[in-house]
Simulated assay, not measured.
Amino acid sequence: MLKMALFFLVISIIAGLFGFGGISAAAAGMAKILFFIAIVLFVVFLVLAVMAGKSLTS
């Protein structure tokens, strides 16, 4: 997921350099959405792993 966010970020930067503002904004928006989804999934799985670890040690 983070690889796709990085890919869209690079596309956004390249499109911005060549003057394609609409494509650049759309790619930057997609990169931002994918980044935040990846962060949310990371936090959810981190909490699940901590809860599973506590139940095994109890």
Rank of each mutant, 00 (worst) to 15 (best):
F35A: 14
V44A: 10
A38H: 05
I14L: 13
G16C: 02
V10Q: 12
M1K: 04
S58M: 03
L48H: 03
F8R: 06
A25M: 13
L48S: 02
G53I: 01
A26C: 02
V10I: 15
I23C: 01
L9E: 15
S12H: 06
L46R: 05
G29F: 10
K32W: 12
F18M: 13
A5S: 15
F8N: 13
F42Q: 12
F36V: 01
I11F: 01
A52K: 03
K54Y: 04
V10D: 12
G53H: 05
A27K: 05
A28I: 03
L46S: 07
K3N: 15
G53V: 02
G22I: 14
K54N: 08
I13A: 08
A28H: 01
M1T: 14
V43Y: 02
G21A: 14
A27R: 02
F8A: 00
I39T: 08
A15C: 10
G29K: 02
A52M: 11
I23R: 06
K54Q: 06
I39M: 15
G22D: 09
I13E: 14
A25W: 13
V10S: 10
L17H: 06
A25S: 06
K32L: 15
A5N: 10
I37E: 05
F36Y: 14
F42V: 10
S24G: 11
A25E: 08
A27F: 10
K54H: 09
F36M: 11
A52F: 11
L9Q: 14
K54V: 13
L17Y: 08
M4P: 04
